[in-house]
Computed example of a mutant assay.
Amino acid sequence: MIWLRYAYVALALFLTTVILSPLQIIALWRGWKLARRMPRYWHMVACFVLGIRIHVHGAIETRRPLMLSANHTSWLDIIVLGRVADVAFIAKSEVRSWPIFGLFARLQNSVFIERTDKRGTGRQVNSIAERMAAGEIIILFPEGTTSDGNRLLPLKYSLFGAASSAVPYSPDGTVHVQPVAVAYTGIQGMPMGRFMRPVVAWPGDVAMLPSLAGVIRARALDVDICFGESVTFEEGTKRKEAAAEVESRMRTLLAERLSGR
């Protein structure tokens, strides 16, 4: 029966991709705002066929420009976050060449950054800032890698440079960075403890296909997405202090949700 489920998921996602990709390519080419919304439909289907139930706590900040700062456990984070909002992701440049997911990342108009390109850092940051100022919601995974889902790794404060750089582009001189916690809390209707979280966690030494197969076998996953109170970046804001406040709020949100509070 598991092979039938593999086939069902693969067929559903393949057909959805075939239908939506041409529309998204045209929307990106023409610069239509539809390009921001289209990926969400794909994520809706993906969550449905994978059996992912999302529970949202709090709400997305309504003020703009806006950056969401989220913890990173798995490739699954992109699907669940893409399901709840029209967003674009900041990704490392290597993702562009990944099979399947590289294509999806390009179709979602992700921002690819080359971490080793020190000379191009300013250009990359300004590109992110311009897109935020244009109204796009940008998601940052400031841990810089994936965790085991049971904790928040130390954040790389330098990655918040895009928020600081977007301040001059903002009409009111402020940029809002909202902490977000993505917590995997249930599997097949039962609470997911720390020993079951490897089912969804995607550490660097695990290949993509085995990780995807594990999620498909799980059949039903519960994910809590918690939106916290935003931290405001403005002229004169000390980036490290503001980033430390974002980190503190993310850590609190994740700990509370994983403990069931």
Score class of each variant (00 low, 15 high):
D117A: 15
L66C: 05
R257Q: 12
G51C: 08
A134D: 14
Y169H: 15
V199Y: 10
R5P: 00
E234V: 00
G122E: 13
E247M: 04
K92L: 07
L159W: 04
S248P: 02
D205A: 10
V111R: 01
G214C: 10
L253Y: 09
E256C: 06
W3F: 13
A85K: 09
Y41P: 00
T232F: 01
G135N: 11
L76D: 01
E94L: 07
R131F: 08
C226A: 14
E114I: 08
I139D: 01
S21M: 11
R96A: 12
G193F: 03
I2G: 14
E130C: 05
V182K: 07
A70G: 02
R119H: 13
T146H: 12
V45R: 13
R106A: 12
R119S: 14
L254W: 06
E136A: 12
S248R: 15
I79Y: 02
H176T: 00
S74Y: 09
A220I: 00
L107P: 00
I113F: 09
I100S: 05
T62G: 15
T185R: 10
I25A: 12
N109A: 15
V177A: 07
T145I: 11
L209M: 14
G58A: 08
T232A: 08
V56Q: 15
A70L: 04
M208I: 15
S164W: 00
G102V: 09
L76F: 08
R64F: 03
F112Q: 09
S158R: 11
I100A: 13
D77P: 05
A243S: 14
A88D: 02
V80P: 01
E247C: 01
G189K: 06
I26D: 03
P65Y: 10
V200L: 07
H55E: 13
G102N: 10
L11Q: 01
I139K: 02
M44D: 08
M1V: 11
R217S: 10
L140M: 12
I216Q: 06
A201F: 08
W29M: 11
Q124D: 11
S259H: 05
T232G: 01
M67Y: 14
Q108L: 00
V9F: 09
D86C: 12
I138T: 07
H55I: 10
A129Q: 05
V177G: 07
M132V: 04
M192D: 10
